[in-house]
Nucleic acid binder design. Structure first.
Lengths: 234, 234
DNA sequence: AGTATGCAACTTGTCGACATAAATCCAGCG
DNA sequence: CGCTGGATTTATGTCGACAAGTTGCATACT
């Protein structure tokens, strides 16, 4: 609303339009700037980005195929809801992906992968040190995505980043509704995971990944439990 | 080429265009009617389907986001290649998904799921009985997709169907280059899996799924090993 | 007064056309 | 004879406009 997120309609390079819109919308959806369920108007976006509806539509098709927006035929397209009821499927899948990608990273990583992973971990530690919840959320995703990339399995990588993105929305929901109590132990857990990967200790990488996932799952579950509990004195 | 796969340009319902093109192209890609690496021309498709380029493009964007086609900026878009070099990542992922989805089906299935699974299994058995390799490939996919659906985890389901589709292309490659020697033991393995799921025996479901996956993986590996081996007498 | 019906405004789906970036071809030069 | 450079050609990316479907409101009818 205020401080219009205007993008100056300066001339873009041919073909950059769709990617621009896609990245922008994706980021706003994951940051909950576009809240779940809110309608996405094509002409509005068209004039906001200073382009025609065609590239907007292509970006929306991409977002729809990734499940970030839902498009009702001949009606509006909406930002997808966060399915709070089926969170257990999310927990199950992300725990498995944490384990599998970390194991594979321990097996297949090369030296340059460790550099990338450590760089992301540095950014993550900085975000935690500054108590910047938003930066922590996105750098945490980058950290684990880097590990998944070192595992060199595009199938796992694709599912994992999708899960991490969904997790970004959920975590964002968490940190905006509660005071930011940032868990520093994540930093140490990350360090341990890096060490296990570097040592190619697959069993230990698996154990750490599972513990890390359990940690995160429990924290989110605590949130939702606390959220729905009514404090009735008896 | 011959027997033109023309679709009469009769008037379609508004909004059905994209889905039509998407389903058609997807099927042709998976059946290798459109071989990997072949270019996909927009105007050609446009006149073939009797519609404008716009819906064609949207279908291509969807296919691209699923990895079935690759679109080079400002250049042509090609049918994705089958990455023979990195087949092990495919084997690894599909084995895990076989196991996970079958386990979850044993846990969460309802009675109507078993009906759907048995229906697909019947079609699969019929295809094997008729020695119809193509029908076997697609019914096999439907069978395992039904199991995955019974597991009720959309994340796993999404990855699994993607893997099964990639597998469809690989198998198709197999059965068109070799004589069709259809393994009947798959039918029995499927039956055993259904029994384990119905009995909610998670451990047995896991074991069977792993064995089934190993079976398929070994068969494909045998193919590629035989394909590259040169028969040099010493 | 409440409900059904028709009109109007808006949004999406599709179209044909234009602008632009690669690929190709041809000519000129070394 | 081969290489470089520009014009041509082809296909993509984008645009503005039209058509069809949907929503909401106003009006009329029971």
């Amino acid at each position: 609303m205020n401080a219009k997120t205007s993008s100056l309609p300066a001339e873009r390079k041919r073909g950059s339009g769709v990617k621009l819109v896609y990245d922008m919308l994706r980021d706003e959806i994951l940051k909950l700037t576009l809240p779940p369920g809110s309608p996405v108007d094509e002409v509005q976006l068209a004039e906001r980005f200073g382009m025609s509806r065609t590239p907007i539509r292509e970006a929306l098709v991409r977002l729809a195929s990734e499940g970030l927006v839902e498009t009702l035929p001949n009606r509006s397209t909406l930002v997808s809801n966060i399915d709070v009821l089926n969170l257990h499927t999310f927990f199950d899948a992300i725990t498995l992906m944490y384990r599998v990608t970390t194991r594979l990273a321990a097996q297949h990583h090369r030296s340059e992968d460790l550099v990338a992973i450590r760089a992301q971990q540095a950014k993550f530690a900085a975000a935690v040190a500054m108590q910047d919840a938003l930066a922590m959320i996105s750098t945490n995703r980058q950290f684990h995505a880097a590990i998944a990339e070192a595992g060199r399995n595009p199938y796992y990588y694709g599912l994992f980043v999708r899960l991490l993105d969904d997790g970004r929305r959920i975590l964002r929901l968490y940190y905006q509704s509660f005071d930011d109590r940032l868990p520093e132990e994540y930093v140490h857990e990350h360090e341990d995971m890096i060490a296990a990967i570097a040592a190619r200790d697959i069993a230990r990488a698996d154990t750490l990944a599972r513990a890390h996932a359990d940690q995160i799952v429990r924290q989110i579950q605590r949130l939702f439990a606390a959220d729905t509990r009514q404090d009735i004195p008896l």
